[in-house]
Design a protein around this nucleic acid. Sequence first.
DNA 1: TTTAATGTTCGATGATCTTAGAACTTTCGA
DNA 2: TCGAAAGTTCTAAGATCATCGAACATTAAA
Lengths: 108, 108
Amino acid sequence: MKILYHPKKEDIHLTAVLAALSDPIRIRLVLDIAKSGERPCGTFEQPVAKSTMSHHVRTLREAGVLNVRVQGTQHLLSLRSEDLEERFPGVLSSILKAAEALEREAPR
Amino acid sequence: MKILYHPKKEDIHLTAVLAALSDPIRIRLVLDIAKSGERPCGTFEQPVAKSTMSHHVRTLREAGVLNVRVQGTQHLLSLRSEDLEERFPGVLSSILKAAEALEREAPR
DNA sequence: TTTAATGTTCGATGATCTTAGAACTTTCGA
DNA sequence: TCGAAAGTTCTAAGATCATCGAACATTAAA
C-alpha cells in the first residue's frame, strides 16, 4: 500500500496554497468538495484526462489543501479545512466564499 | 504619457489574484505596501533586477491587486484594498494577515 | 484466477513564467 | 540643453506547468 505524502500543518506554505488554488480546475475541485464533503476522485466532471486530474489532486494534496484517504481502489478526497483555518485563519473560507459567489454569477 | 491598464473592479478574477499573490517576491511586495502605504516602485529592497521588478508590478497591476499612479519619473504603488474587499470579501485581508504572521515567524 | 475499476506513474509536448541585461522613454534638475 | 533618475520594453534563456496517452499497480468482484 502506497503512502501518500501530506505536509504537516506547520509545514503548509501560504504561497503553495495560493498557487494550488489559482488554477481554475483545482479551485472548482476544491469548491465541489467543500460543498459535498468527502468524495472519491473519479466523481468529478472535469474536462480533463484521468492523468491530469491525478496531477491536480496531487498538487492540492502536497500543498496541504486536500487530504487523500485510500479505500480499496478509490481515493477519497476531503478538505483540510481545520488545519488550514488554524494555520491561515480566514484564508480558505473567504476564498471558498468568493469562488462560490463567482459560480453563482457564471454557473456550470 | 503612458496609460497603464487597470482592470475594472468587476473584471478582477479570483484565480488571477491568487496567482499574483502566490509568488514569494510579489506577496512580500504587497505586504510591504500594505504596511507602509503608497510608495514608489524603486524603494523595495528585493534581490531582483529592475526589469524583473517591473514585470512583477505589472503582474500585480493587471491582476487588479495594485494601483499604479505615475508621478514624474516615479510610479507610486498602492493596494486596491477597497475594490478587492468589495469583490472578494476577506480574501486579501486574511492573506495579508497570514503573510504578516509568517514574516514574524521567519523575518527578513 | 480472471477481469474490471480506480488511480498513479512515465515520458513528451507546448505553453507560460521568472529572470536578467541592453536599449529605450520620459521627466526633472542643474 | 544635457544628464541623471526611474521605469518600461525587448529579447532570450532556463524552469516550471498543464495536458495527454500509454503502461502499470492495486483492489474488489465475478
